Amino acid sequence: MTSPPCTQSPELFFAEHPAALAKARELCAACPLAADCLAGALERSEPYGVWGGQIVVDGVIVASKRGRGRPRKSEAA
């Protein structure tokens, strides 16, 4: 077996930019270790990153990651 994609470009799996996270998720989709990777990340409550093809924030799967900084005014109200 070749090494998993996360070992070839690890910074991609912890990126802030949505396009980079989408690329990481795409690479995970073909990985035979994806299910075990995700299960382990959820068990450990990983703080952030792409694990098993899913974006994890604070140990929970999220649909997308919000960028750093202040929330939009509409969200703050």
Rank of each mutant, 00 (worst) to 15 (best):
S3F: 10
P4M: 01
P4E: 12
P5S: 07
C6F: 11
C6Y: 04
F14W: 01
F14T: 09
A15Y: 02
E16K: 11
H17F: 13
A20C: 04
A22I: 07
A22F: 00
A22L: 00
A24Y: 02
A24P: 02
R25E: 13
C28L: 05
C28S: 11
A29K: 14
A30I: 06
C31I: 10
L33P: 13
L33D: 13
L33I: 03
A34R: 09
C37N: 01
C37F: 01
C37S: 08
L38E: 12
L38T: 02
L38R: 08
G40W: 01
G40L: 00
E43H: 06
E43P: 02
P47E: 07
P47G: 03
P47F: 06
P47Y: 00
Y48S: 09
Y48P: 09
Y48L: 08
Y48D: 05
W51S: 04
W51L: 04
G52M: 12
G52S: 07
G53S: 01
Q54D: 02
D58S: 06
G59Y: 05
V60H: 13
V60E: 09
I61L: 12
S64P: 04
K65R: 15
R68A: 08
G69M: 05
R72V: 08
K73E: 07
E75F: 10
A76M: 11
A77D: 14
A77Q: 11
